[in-house]
Design a binder for these strands. Structure first.
Length: 827
RNA sequence: GCGAGAGUGGUGGAACGGCAGACACGCUAGACUCAGGAUCUAGUGGGCAUUACGCCUGUGGGGGUUCAAAUCCCCCCUCUCGCACCA
């Protein structure tokens, strides 16, 4: 091959095409008659630099966006910035740079990187949550929640992160530490804002059924987090006092086995029980001791169960028995009623507790096949069974008895059936500056008032001073703080707390559908035209937090008549992490690879290809520099094909003589690859096997060229190179485009229709089948395709090796899979 | 402890119940080269053979179903993730 050849230079072709796409406005989405597809990747926090996790999620999204566009869908593929949050404020404290400046600079830097990756976003729909024209509507939505009685303020024991100097939602506490900085979370009694997500607990749980396109594990995690349990609330009157202690139990069938009542150390009625008794000192010291322990230590299973008698007793309503009341370290105030009925025989915790404090163990459930003996039990009997020692309920099966006892309690007015959730209300206020201000005003005369809609947004003042560890700067900003009461006009003051940033990200996917609307958060007809998101892609770390909140928001907006959608995301792809050397990439380990480096060294196409090729999207991926080299090598191989044959095929006479056997085989290889790529993207998101199919086809092309060097079929070569450019376009968009141009095409490869494979080309005259004897492979033979079972069996038996293996034995049975296999069962 | 998922060459990973290891990395040999960390060709699970390119074995371990199991069922082991005194 003579002539001057140009090397594959991604550094030249990538910026060229990126500029072209931008100038042509290819990726602008307009509503048209085509079938819509809303494709969304979780928007990033603008930390300043893309990391490999970002690169992975955007690469996955972009393959789908480009593929679906070629498939004829009208694709909405937007990008934006989850731009409020603590890091900006920390940067402000450390470096005296304003959070806004820091954030917008980061956005610019990351956007540049995204563009360098060649991702096909519609940048005209970009949303930035810290921009006033966005947070105006975040505030408006807060007021909507407020009106609908879904936003309320209360004093409660809340999680406080001393490091971040703010409170946290339950979902943001991980193993007792702050989700952001890991600092041990303290419990404080504070007046805070909450969203009443518990009102939606049942629907959030029930509608998980609708999310068939979500990974099972994410649904399970949400299910566990919501933590529904059904049972009964039973009120135990306190002996000698005008008091009742309600308890929640999931096992009302064990009610006759109660031998104690155990309260949490924080129980509000505790004081009234022990004050004045001789137990007072002991209880006080126990309570003090327990409350001193950290939340982590207290909720550990390892913690020995301890408690102390309060001096008081209560009456089991169903049998009138007197039952001692204790305080126990294993009872949590945050769940149920903060009090439990102790049934040692049938609850492991109560059993351990009873053993420690010599409380009686009374068996009330009998297993079906043996009988229990209280003295010999080494652990509680938890399973269901038949009731014993339970008055007129004796003899009933657990489940039925539970229902009967609930009915009985209800009739007598002692209790009722109850469903409890683990889910708590969402604590949304934060004592920080860089967030959307909560639009509330406090007036000494009129009380708490919402900011009138026409006064939105409540702007964050820019001239603020940042100091480490201190209060929110908003509290020291008189111009922000002082405001006239919207009702009486007298001096009033603003709420200085801002909103949890998870609120901003709970509705951004609505705003994308109508990003510039100055009149409302989004127009219903626009959002209804696009939502729900067909495919959402993001990290598993958001399995609970963001995904639960976004679902909650969608349901509230639905109830408010703002959207048709009841669930925001039809399908969810939880992509795996990007590791290196088997460990998470981190600065401290020194194993960080940045997208920038990769783009610089190999180009965006190589980086994208590797990240898609190295593992299926939902699995963790181990970054491997050698593997990247391999993908680079592959693209160079592709490049050389076009470089050498691009001109030749343009001159091809398409009506050339009928292709020979080798050329037909080449066509077949490419149509087969096309079929596989189509199926792998469309049905399974298995980009790794899709890419390997293209690689196989390219290998076949090299094989053909080596074999037929002097006598190439130009028409076939032209056809397969076109298929190659088209199938590669979603994965390596720049090279695909460059190839397409070099094949003499005038309009962008990304505007082409995805090619259909030709089933007739896949037809083969002969197929190779496997012949097994007793399940072991004993021969392979080439036979005409479509042969019937008898004929296949005949051919198999005529094969020399097979005949040898069968010799002297009787064929009992033959299993024939057409065009594939014959298995002879002999003896 | 509970729940979910996963265990396949030296490595990443492929295999509608039907040829295990596609594709790629790495490695070996050769070709072209002043040279190659470029490119091309061939080989590459393990063992035994190698005049026949054939035999045996092999998907964490053990059982089972089936003509046929990496794939389905049961038991066990290991790892990852999530939840974890939730009454």
């Amino acid at each position: 091959m003579g002539g001057r050849k140009v090397d594959y230079s991604p550094g030249v072709i990538e910026p060229k095409w990126q500029q072209y796409w931008e100038e042509q406005g290819f990726y602008k989405t307009v509503e048209d008659g085509k079938k819509k597809y809303y494709l969304l990747e979780m928007f990033p926090y603008p930390s300043g630099k893309l990391h490999m996790g970002h690169m992975r999620v955007y690469s996955i999204g972009d393959v789908l966006a480009r593929f679906l566009t070629m498939r004829g869908y009208n694709v909405l593929h937007p990008m934006g910035w989850d731009a409020f949050g603590l890091p900006a404020e920390n940067a402000a404290i450390e470096r005296q740079v304003h959070p806004a400046k820091w954030t917008y600079e980061n956005i610019a830097a990351m956007k540049k990187q995204q563009k360098a990756l060649g991702i096909s976003y519609d940048w005209e729909r970009e949303v930035t949550t810290c921009a006033p024209d966005y947070y105006k509507w975040t505030q408006w939505l807060f007021l909507l929640f407020y009106e609908r009685k879904l936003a309320y303020k209360k004093k409660a024991a809340v999680n406080w992160c001393p490091q971040c100097a703010t409170v946290l939602a339950n979902e943001q506490v991980e193993e007792g530490g702050c989700w952001r900085c890991g600092e041990i979370v303290a419990v404080k009694d504070l007046e805070q804002w909450f969203f009443k997500i518990t009102d939606y607990a049942e629907r959030l749980l029930a509608d998980l059924r609708l999310l068939e396109g979500w990974p099972e594990r994410v649904r399970v995690m949400q299910e566990n987090w919501i933590g529904k349990s059904e049972g009964a609330e039973i009120r135990f009157p306190v002996k000698g006092k005008e008091l009742e202690l309600p308890v929640f139990t999931t096992r009302p069938d064990t009610l006759y086995g109660v031998t104690s009542l155990v309260l949490a150390a924080e129980h509000p009625l505790l004081d009234k029980l022990f004050t004045g008794t001789e137990q007072e000192a002991a209880v006080r010291s126990f309570v003090a001791q327990t409350r001193k322990l950290s939340e982590v230590a207290r909720s550990s299973t390892e913690m020995p169960k301890e408690g102390v008698f309060t001096g008081a007793a209560c009456i089991n309503p169903v049998n009138g028995e007197e039952v001692p009341i204790l305080v126990g370290n294993y009872v949590l105030m945050g769940y149920g009623t903060g009090a439990v009925m102790g049934v040692p025989a049938h609850d492991q915790r109560d059993f351990e507790f009873a053993k420690e404090y010599d409380l009686p163990i009374r068996i009330v459930i009998s297993p079906p096949d043996y009988s229990l003996s209280a003295a010999e039990m080494t652990e509680a009997y938890l399973a269901q069974g038949v009731l014993v020692n339970s008055a007129h309920f004796s003899g009933m099966a657990s489940e039925k008895a539970g229902q009967a006892i609930i009915a009985y309690l209800q009739e007598k007015g002692w209790g009722h059936g109850k469903t409890t959730y683990r889910l708590r209300d969402w604590l949304i206020s934060r004592q920080r500056y860089w967030g959307a201000p909560i639009p509330i005003i406090y007036c000494d005369d009129c009380g708490m008032l919402p900011v009138p809609e026409q006064d939105l947004p409540v702007l964050l003042p820019e001239d603020v001073v940042f100091k480490a560890g201190g209060q929110s700067p908003l509290e020291q900003h008189p111009a922000f703080l002082h405001v006239k009461c919207p009702r009486c006009g007298r001096d009033a003051r603003r709420e200085t707390d801002t909103m949890d940033t998870f609120i901003c990200s709970s509705w951004y996917f609505f705003r994308y559908t109508d990003p510039k609307n100055a009149e409302q958060a989004f127009a219903r007809e626009k959002s209804d035209a696009w939502l729900p998101v067909e495919q959402y892609i993001g990290g598993i770390e958001h399995a609970i937090l963001h995904l639960l909140y976004a679902r909650f928001f969608t349901k509230v907006l639905h109830d408010a008549g703002m959207t048709r959608a009841v669930e925001p995301f039809s399908r969810l792809l939880a992509q795996g992490m990007v590791n290196k050397d088997g460990a998470k990439m981190s600065k401290s380990k020194g194993n960080v690879v940045s997208p920038d480096e990769i783009i610089k060294k190999y180009g965006a196409d190589t980086g994208r290809l590797f990240i898609l090729f190295a593992a299926p999207p939902e699995k963790d991926l181990d970054w491997n520099d050698r593997g990247v080299e391999g993908c680079y090598r592959f693209l160079k191989r592709v490049w050389r094909l076009v470089e050498r044959y691009g001109d030749i095929v343009q001159a091809a006479d398409v009506k050339a003589a009928a292709p020979d056997e080798a050329a037909l085989a080449l066509r077949r290889a490419f149509h087969l690859a096309l079929k596989k790529v189509t199926d792998d993207i469309e049905q399974r998101f298995n980009f790794n096997t899709a890419i390997s199919a293209v690689m196989e086809a390219v290998n076949a092309a090299y094989g053909y060229i080596n074999e037929k060097e002097a006598n190439l079929d130009r028409a076939v070569l032209a056809e397969v190179l076109e298929i190659l450019a088209l199938t590669l376009a979603p994965f390596a968009p720049h090279l695909g485009e460059e190839m397409w141009a070099r094949l003499g095409k005038k309009t962008s490869v990304h505007l082409q229709a995805w090619p259909e494979y030709d089933a007739a080309v896949l037809q083969v005259e002969n197929v190779e089948i496997v012949v097994q004897v007793n399940g072991k492979v004993r021969g392979r033979l080439i036979i005409p395709a479509g042969l019937d079972a008898t004929a296949m069996q005949d051919r198999a038996l005529r094969d020399e090796r097979v005949a040898q293996a069968v010799a002297g034995q009787q064929v009992l049975k033959a299993i024939v899979v057409p065009d594939k296999l014959v298995n002879l069962v002999v003896r």
